[in-house]
Amino acid sequence: MTFKSLMNSILFTEIAQGLKVTFRHFFKKKLTVQYPHEKLTLADGYRGFIVHRRYDNGQERCVGCDLCEAICPAKAIRVVGDIHPEFPERRYAKEYTLDFTRCIFCGFCVVACPVNALSMTKEFAHSSFTREGLIYPKDKLLALGDRCEDESIAYLKVRNMWDAEDSGKEEGRYHFPPIPTT
């Protein structure tokens, strides 16, 4: 045993070295967030609860095309299409159910949507005492979408799905029966 190692064992140098990181963090800014009293700022591309969107005139965007149902890997979506009660040339979703107990928040449905009717928000804490409470019908999804409109737009922008919406170009856009402006 050398003198150096003797001193090391007397003065607990290794322990001091090991605790250096700990002690350094004593004086740094705290990272722990006191959820639910404090909340983090989430990124725009956060894949939270899925919502339904409306056009500026309040018309719901969903055309009931079933593509989200087709692509959903968890089979969480169910769409029943029908003729729009007011405009017989339009298709709409008579029933639209999203089962958040099954949803894996992959975001495929948002990509599949041809009319940007679906988007994701920063909402994540929708708990319920029953399973049925997490099965969202269309009006609930629309209400959530109205509340989180900015978040849903931000999601589409950051995920590069906003271009077709405001490019104004005819080419490459789906051509649906025109939506009345009133």
Partner: peptide
């Protein structure tokens, strides 16, 4: 041809 395959019954 309109590109309305999502709402077209033939899609």
């Amino acid at each position: 041809h309109p590109l309305d395959c999502p709402v077209c019954d033939c899609g």
